[in-house]
């Protein structure tokens, strides 16, 4: 456990705290044993340690659902709000406090269903935050209802004879939005790839959208079963500017050299294929971030009162 000297901080002394992984650990996670969220939590805590983010300057915002318990398990500031509404809250935080490190954890119901319009617009605002979609293809907390990403024909409690519609593709959807600046996909059962993807995403300045394929041992264990067991069903998108994990290609033989700046190829790659594609689909560092577009000079209270008095002059009788 790292300690900081309160009085030192107050005096503006150098902050030489070093953080270990456990410094980012909140309460014990209460997800089911075997839930993919555990591995995502670990990867995230590792990321914070690697980046040495100050816990007090880090905020995790979530919606409602299994995955949205995320903030409780981090020892940072957290905001566990409403179903589908994590992104507006994150937008407000970032607008007022751009210096904070902002993370958003959403489930597939959160992001792709009830909060879908916020997802679309957050992509367009392109504020600097890392948004992870913990996609288990199902509503877990409410016990097994079809979500927008549930594969067609997969049975659920609301559609017991099989999901009627084709699944929504979150990667294609995000890539279709104006101002999309970072779109990646990874899987929780490949921790090194997960970690590297999160790291690259965190370092991207803008709205980093990472879809994390995530097993639910209770409701959707079978969906990813084959892909977990058979590396042949995975294709890694690799590039010097992409996600690179040493020796990972020893296990996953199928790789595709894809330049993340190439949007058209990214869109083609996002389409369903025989293999799950993991890696960075698209990255564009040149898209302006909203909090900078909207940044205004700050004025002292005296200055503001003076200006408001001038304003009142215009309305004076």
């Amino acid at each position: 456990m790292t300690h900081y000297g309160q009085s030192l901080l107050g005096c503006g002394m150098i902050d030489d705290r070093h953080f270990e992984m456990e410094d980012y650990q909140g309460t014990i996670a209460r997800w089911c044993p075997g839930c993919g969220d555990h591995s995502i939590l670990t990867a995230m805590q590792r990321l914070l340690e690697e980046e040495q983010l100050k816990p007090e300057n880090t905020v995790f915002v979530s919606g409602i659902g299994c995955s949205s318990r995320f903030p409780h398990y981090m020892k940072t500031y957290g905001f566990h709000g409403l179903h589908g509404r994590a992104l507006p809250v994150a937008t407000g935080i970032k607008l007022e406090r751009p210096e904070l490190h902002l993370f958003v954890a959403m489930g597939d119901g959160d992001c792709c269903s009830i909060g879908a319009s916020h997802w679309l617009h957050a992509t367009r605002y392109n504020m600097d935050m890392l948004a992870v979609l913990l996609d288990n293809n199902m509503y877990g907390l409410t016990k097994g209802q079809t979500s927008p990403t549930t594969p067609q024909k997969f049975p659920s409690n609301t559609q017991p004879s099989g999901t009627y519609l084709r699944a929504l593709n979150p990667i294609s959807a995000t890539l279709g939005v104006t101002n999309a600046s970072f779109v990646a996909q990874t899987a929780e059962w490949i921790p090194p790839h997960l970690f590297e993807t999160l790291k690259v995403a965190y370092r991207h300045k803008g709205f980093s959208f990472v879809r994390i394929l995530q097993r639910c041992p209770v409701y959707t264990a079978s969906i990813f079963e084959e892909a977990v067991r058979d590396p042949d069903l995975i294709e890694l998108l690799i590039h010097d500017d992409g996600v690179w994990v040493k020796d990972l290609d020893q296990i996953y033989g199928h790789t595709f050299y894809h330049d993340p700046r190439d949007l058209n190829t990214a869109r083609a790659l996002a389409e369903p294929s025989d293999r799950l594609r993991l890696g960075i689909f698209y990255r564009n560092e040149d898209v302006p971030v909203y909090e900078e577009i909207r940044r205004l000079p700050s004025y002292t209270a005296d200055e503001r009162v003076r200006t408001l008095n001038q304003e009142l002059d215009r309305y004076a009788v």
């Binding site: 509404r85 992104l87 809250v89 937008t91 407000g92 007022e96 904070l100 916020h118």
Partner: peptide, 21 residues
């Protein structure tokens, strides 16, 4: 800043986020 949000729900969410911050 006047932030014109994507909908009424987002508008109050943004205000709450800013206040929380």
């Amino acid at each position: 800043v006047v932030h014109q949000a994507e909908d009424e729900i987002a508008a109050v969410g943004v205000a709450i986020g800013a206040s929380y911050a």
